[in-house]
Write a protein that binds this DNA or RNA. Structure first.
Lengths: 190, 190, 190, 190
DNA sequence: CATGAATGAGGTTTCATTCAT
DNA sequence: TATGAATGAAACCTCATTCAT
């Protein structure tokens, strides 16, 4: 048996990291971060408690990595960087994307919303969140300016608030919340 | 120096209960329920840990009472029971009331939003919440029906979602969130 | 049963603190700081693990308090503050005191010697130790200056080193180490 | 490109063993045995954790080998076996050697002193230490007997204690401790 | 009614050691 | 020979809750 190559080790690491993050995300979303012990994550992931600490220096670090991954996914999925001419179609695509993401990544949003109110989380992600939401926010403002709205700042804030309102309500009651219909209304209004 | 009457005792008791609840609410809102120890509540309230257990059978019970008080306050402040003719003015009054409450009771909303995603909380308040929001929801539906909207259910859902979106964003950044301007927009739309 | 008075609480605290410190000192001295678990201290002290954390914020804090108590005891027993004229009798009294203390407080010295080499300990007690040993050291220098020695600094360093050498050897083998005879030799030389 | 001879393998092995021991010694001396994880030794040595266990059956075994090597070095450097006529020059050479060794092997002494108080260490090295120090001790006694001292046993004990006192103080503060001057004083006294 | 000492279950984290590759 | 993933025991520490006073 020849020793494993560096590549093999890296593969193992990456897979395990993803697996742990996924299990943890589900549990955090379902039961809350503080009320989910590491031991439970380990059990669900089918590994030992100790191994988690091979990959994440602490429970908080694990949380942070999950949240940051979610943000990155958000950015790449919505192609936020690429929206530069801020046309109507792009905004609509963004709205669509946002709500589609909500359907696909319910767990992430659940975690996100349950933590976003706590100062600890905000500190944890301060820079990352400022970056992402700052960008989106500016694009919305520009869009409303272009549209000739009189209070572009207010409108942008309002629209972002509506997104989160929809997000929360969908997450609380995904079965019955009429996401598709509301999506249409929202797009119509824009 | 006559011994206190039963009424006086009752008053003292009620005052103390309210005091504890208020302190606990602030701490829960600021640091989260799970990360706020009873000992800290006791310290802030200026009493001993043990005494809290004279008034509340457990930490969870304390949380529950806080949440229910908040709901009751919500109900009475918005006079939900009395809205029966569901006229436009009443809906507007409701919207105004709701956002005013948000400004006054920021702590409560902070706690509420940080917990509302967790199944434990939902269980805790299942009945109470169904009552309150069920009522509001029905009234909204009726209102939109009256207005001749084609999807009153969807619209009602949407409006409630918007409320919570505004709530969350105001709570996260109360200094800069343009609550008053958005309030106007919202009323205009209705 | 009337509630306990503040005085009673304070008495309990002081007693428990002393009891825990004593038990911990013995165990630390016997088995080393790092290899003595809190659980063992609790067992020996006849209390629960948790209670130790009522009185000491961490294991390291407990260690620190033990070491500082030892230093304070050292200071008061040897009346270091009062030695100001630095006469021969006083130095002799100091030597005697020092070695007597060694006999009585073997555990403390054991702990002290086993930790004094580790940077962590030095950091923990930096200020306290500088104070105490700085004073002693200066008095020794003055004494040797008075005696007309040509290298008072070197002599003072040497004497302190000898103390510690004797200390260590006595501690390692208290049964057979001829402390009394060496004490006499030391005094004769001074 | 001929395959390595057994001798070459042996050399490689010995070199690696020495390398690991050296790294471990430095870390143990700096941070303490118990607070130095194997993983850190591996990292500093530039090898994997697992490989350490190819050369040493356990962490304790590694410690033991380090300590025994130190003792052997001590013996061979001071040529303890060869001191048989116990003349004054030999004792002086021993004193000189001892203090020179201290300057060169500070790390070893640091480790040695930090562990020598703990029963575990004493057990680990019981036989070896008895041999070495027993021999030295006897020679000192003989020397003092030869010199006509009235308490040769006490004097020998005293001298050994002084060595260790000097050692400790030098280790704690190698920059300022006047080792050379004290060396002279010591030799003068003998 | 009021206190805080006391408990004990359970949480996070560390790390010596093993082992598949 | 060499790697580091993986384990599991055991460490430190927290805190809701109880209870004697």
């Amino acid at each position: 048996m020849s020793p494993r190559t560096e590549q093999q080790f890296e593969d193992i690491r990456r897979e395990k990291v993803e697996h742990i993050k996924l299990c943890a995300l589900q549990l955090f979303a379902e039961n809350g971060y503080d009320t989910t012990p590491i031991s439970k994550i380990a059990k669900v992931a089918g590994i030992s408690k100790g191994l988690i600490y091979n990959y994440f220096s602490s429970k908080e670090e694990l949380l942070k990595e999950i949240l940051i991954s979610g943000l990155k996914n958000f950015i790449s999925f919505l192609k936020i960087e690429e929206i530069d001419r801020i046309k109507r179609e792009e905004i609509i695509a963004f709205v669509d994307g946002n709500l589609n993401l909500l359907k696909q990544n319910t767990d992430y949003y659940k975690l996100y919303f349950s933590l976003v109110m706590q100062p600890k989380t905000v500190q944890l992600l301060e820079n990352e969140m400022r970056d992402v939401f700052g960008q989106i926010f500016e694009k919305f403002i520009h869009y409303f300016e272009q549209q000739g709205e009189d209070q572009p700042y207010v409108k942008a804030r309002y629209l972002l608030a509506i997104f989160d309102g929809i997000g929360i309500h969908y997450i609380i009651d995904p079965e019955r919340f009429p996401l598709d219909e509301i999506q249409e209304i929202l797009i119509t209004k824009i």
